[in-house]
């Protein structure tokens, strides 16, 4: 192998990389918070919600979980304009991530809700709480605590999956890597560097989510 590695371009192109990292972080921040919120709503519907809404949510969850993220992204970005919904590339990327994480997290959260002992619901009812109040105050937090590790992994998976949004020209980290390789022809180095950054981001995100877990569920920290 007579290949000379050259990372000299890093000095010239680091603003692109920093910008790419910022956009990747923005995408997962918005996607993570909104996606988990959507997941909570969908999990509530599927576990306890009105009967007529259940099949709708079930269809949404199954459809998203059984199609590739890339196709969901293309459908939103290229397909929806023919219904009159024209989105910018970042909006489309955000929407796709929310829709995607919403479906996956709803399944995880639903598992947590269904593992709640019946007595909890009855205890809430005996305190004259409405079903919604029981869900909000009694069921939800312990359910989330139960499934927090699985939910964290899913958020990391979605963050890594966000590399695909470069394909609709959203200028994330992968987009920066593609840009650099097209300018410098240092494809291997550009992708190695961005892969390392992704690995670092994944490790940091996992730590962050663990800390968020300790903050929301202080009981666990005391144990």
């Amino acid at each position: 192998m007579n290949y000379q590695f050259d990372f000299g371009w890093l000095f010239e192109y680091y603003p692109q990389i920093v910008k790419g990292i910022a956009i990747t972080i923005e995408l997962i921040a918005v996607g993570g918070v909104a996606g988990i919120s959507l997941g909570i709503v969908c999990a509530w519907v599927r576990a306890l919600g009105p009967a007529w809404l259940k099949p709708v949510v079930a269809a949404y969850v199954e459809l998203i979980r059984n199609t590739p993220f890339l196709i969901q992204l293309f459908f939103i970005f290229f397909g929806l304009p023919s219904l009159g919904l024209q989105l910018g590339e970042l909006q489309a990327a955000n929407l796709a991530m929310v829709v995607n994480l919403g479906a996956y997290s709803s399944e995880i959260i639903r598992a947590g809700i269904q593992a709640t002992p019946r007595g909890q619901f009855e205890a809430g009812a005996s305190l004259a709480m409405s079903p919604f109040e029981t869900f909000r105050h009694v069921v939800l937090v312990p359910s989330l605590e139960r499934i927090w590790p699985a939910l964290s992994s899913q958020v990391v998976i979605v963050m890594l999956g966000s590399a695909v949004v470069s394909q609709i020209a959203a200028e994330d980290l992968t987009f920066a890597a593609n840009f650099i390789q097209s300018r410098t022809f240092r494809a291997f180095e550009a992708y190695i560097v961005s892969t390392a950054v992704y690995l670092l981001l994944a490790i940091l995100l996992r730590q962050l989510l663990a800390m968020v877990g300790w903050a929301i569920f202080p009981k666990r920290a005391a144990r």
Binding site: M1, T174, F188, Y191
Partner: peptide
């Protein structure tokens, strides 16, 4: 811990380095 897309890129461009 890394995106599959990056792994694909590295396989695609990295193997090329070996001629």
């Amino acid at each position: 811990g890394t995106p599959l897309l990056m792994q694909l890129f590295i396989a695609f461009f990295g193997l090329g380095l070996f001629g």
